[in-house]
């Protein structure tokens, strides 16, 4: 028990993803590393376009052409505690299909468009269960369609959808945004995955429903002991959900650490700037909220060296010359900044 708790469920090592477009190559993820422990909620924050979603898609090799994983490892500890590198699996092969939906599930960003509008939601969830039909019985017997339907109704009840027997035959466009997202969560949970990737699951829905969905996810995590990677640009949501936080900027990890350390003792100038720009309940009113100066650079024009240096208030000469590597700055806290360590990321 203690041993498996110490070993990460998922370990992303120096991941690089680039998109070869007509006008040039965009390096969307540029050397990202982090770990996810079993049962942990890992929050990933960053501005839009910082490579959060691409990283998540890369874990399941769901990146569309012309995107490609060019470097790095995605080590996943399977059920029999065998460790495999997801980045090496053929993207359309049976091994990866077994893991997708079965061991790692995805809650996509847009619940509106993530269900097919011409199939009922129940139909699509039953299909997900049947795809992993042999996982359900210890003797390897495949689950029947009727059983799968029963499971789906049970899932609907678990995620708080009222009248599940009727809703299962509804089309996604007949459901409200909140219900749709709950159905999506039900589908993601259908095969009891050990890792759940939630890609901004609450961005597209209103605040009240948002709170309900967050509470639901929290509750489900406790019940099934599922690890969750929670992606958002909303720091408030992170504070509420995550126990460990990764801060990303332009495809690189700037800082990572336990949620309390990140919020109360941020060490990287980017994290500090991000936190300053968040309106506080007890802050002074009628003063302009500090913003991060400058704009996110165009994807074709990545700054050399530390990607944040053109906008950094503490910029130094070496920042534009070399890229700092991610080094410990606290007990479990790491940052990649020359303010704290002179180590250069050579790769």
């Amino acid at each position: 028990m203690s041993q498996s708790a110490a070993a990460p469920l998922l370990s992303v090592r120096n991941l690089r993803v680039s998109f070869a477009l007509d006008d040039g190559v965009v390096r969307a993820v540029d050397g990202t590393s982090f770990d996810v422990m079993p049962g942990q909620v890992l929050g990933i924050v960053g501005e839009s376009g910082c490579g959060k979603s691409v990283t998540m898609k890369a874990i399941l090799q769901l990146i569309d052409r012309p995107g490609r994983i060019t470097h790095g490892e995605i080590l996943f500890r399977r059920e029999g505690s065998e460790v495999i590198d997801l980045a090496r699996l053929p993207p359309r092969g049976p091994a990866l299909r077994e893991i997708r939906g079965g061991e790692i599930a995805l809650i996509p960003q847009e619940p509106m468009a993530s269900f097919s509008p011409v199939h009922t939601v129940g139909d699509q969830i039953v299909e997900a269960i049947l795809l992993h039909a042999h996982r359900w019985h210890a003797d390897g017997r495949r689950i029947s369609r009727r059983e799968a339907r029963e499971i789906t109704i049970g899932l609907f009840r678990d995620v708080g959808i009222s009248m599940p027997e009727q809703r299962i035959d509804a089309y996604s466009w007949q459901l409200s945004g909140g219900l749709r997202q709950r159905a999506m969560i039900a589908m993601a949970l259908s095969c009891r995955p050990r890792l759940l990737i939630a890609d901004e699951p609450t961005t597209a829905i209103d605040v009240t429903t948002q709170a309900q969905v967050l509470a639901l996810l929290h509750d489900l995590k406790d019940r099934y002991n599922t690890a969750i990677i929670f992606i958002t640009h909303d720091l408030g949501v992170i504070a509420q959900m995550a126990s460990y936080v990764v801060v990303m900027y332009l495809g690189r990890v700037m800082e990572q650490g336990p949620v309390d350390d990140i919020f109360h003792a941020p060490r990287h100038p980017y994290t500090q700037a991000l936190l300053r720009s968040m309106p506080g309940l007890h802050g002074r009113t009628r003063v302009p909220l500090p913003v991060i100066t400058g704009a996110l650079p165009h994807p074709f024009n990545r700054p050399l060296g530390c990607p944040f240096h053109p906008r950094c208030p503490d910029v130094m000469a070496q920042c534009s010359a070399a890229t700092p590597s991610l080094e410990p700055v606290g007990v479990e806290q790491l940052a990649s900044c020359f303010l704290h360590s002179d180590k250069v990321d050579a790769s």
Binding site: G101, P108, F115, P117
Partner: peptide, 9 residues
Amino acid sequence: YVVTARAKG
């Protein structure tokens, strides 16, 4: 929804 279906395996 294609990504969703792919993510189902």
